[in-house]
C-alpha cells in the first residue's frame, strides 16, 4: 500500500519533469531553427508588423472586409458566437448584416453575397475569405479608390490560394495580404 503510493508519487515527478520539461525544451529548441524562431508567421510592410495567420478586423469600406467576428478580432480571447441555427435574435443579426452590406455596396444583388460574409467564424480570428467574398466587394472599393474594377479583380485572382497540392481542401484568400497589396496599388 505505502509502497504503491510512494512509487506513484515518484513516477509522477519523474514523468512530469520529462514530459512537461524535457519534451517542451526540445520542441522549444527545434523552434529556433524555423523562421521567426517559433513566434508565429509575420509580414512586415511600411515598418508595421502583422501576424499572417491572425485575422484582423477590416470594416472600413476602402478595404476588403473580413468576416464578422463574435469577439471583434480580439486575439487575446478567441471564440465564436455559439448562436444556435434557430435563434431568432441571431437570425436578426444576420439579416442586419445583409442589409448593411447592401447599403455599403450599391448595385450588389442579395444572391451575390456569399453566406460566409454575414456569418461569424469559429475562432473570431478567421484570416481568410473566399474568392466570391472578395469579388463581391470589388465594385465598392474600385469606386472609392478610383481604380478600374478590372485591376482589382486581377488583384483578387492573384491572391487566391488554391487547395493543398491542388487536391485537398477549399480555395481562399488571406484578407491581410490582399489589403496590403491593395495599399500598394497605384
Amino acid at each position: 500500500m505505502k509502497q504503491h503510493i510512494l512509487s506513484a508519487i515518484r513516477l509522477t515527478i519523474v514523468t512530469l519533469i520529462f514530459f512537461s520539461g524535457v519534451y517542451t525544451l526540445v520542441i522549444l529548441g527545434i523552434a529556433q531553427l524555423f523562421p521567426n524562431h517559433g513566434k508565429g508567421e509575420i509580414i512586415e510592410q511600411n515598418g508595421k508588423r502583422y501576424y499572417t495567420n491572425i485575422g484582423q478586423s477590416f470594416t472600413d469600406d476602402k478595404y476588403f472586409n473580413s468576416r464578422p467576428s463574435a469577439v471583434g478580432y480580439n486575439a487575446a480571447g478567441s471564440g465564436g458566437s455559439n448562436k444556435g441555427p434557430s435563434n431568432e435574435e441571431y437570425l436578426g443579426v444576420v439579416q442586419a448584416r445583409i442589409d448593411t452590406f447592401l447599403l455599403h455596396n450599391p448595385g450588389v444583388q442579395k444572391a451575390d453575397i456569399p453566406v460566409e460574409l454575414v456569418t461569424a467564424s469559429g475562432s473570431g480570428l478567421d484570416p481568410d475569405i473566399s474568392e466570391k467574398a472578395a469579388l463581391v466587394q470589388v465594385k465598392r472599393i474600385a469606386k472609392l479608390r478610383n481604380l478600374p474594377e478590372q485591376k482589382l479583380q486581377q488583384l483578387v485572382k492573384e491572391h487566391i490560394e488554391g487547395p493543398l497540392l491542388g487536391l485537398f481542401g477549399p480555395t481562399k484568400i488571406n484578407v491581410l495580404k490582399l489589403n496590403l497589396a491593395l495599399e500598394n496599388l497605384r
Partner: peptide
Amino acid sequence: AMEGKETRF
C-alpha cells in the same frame, strides 16, 4: 452553414 466555421477548412 458557415457560422462558427473557418474559411481555410
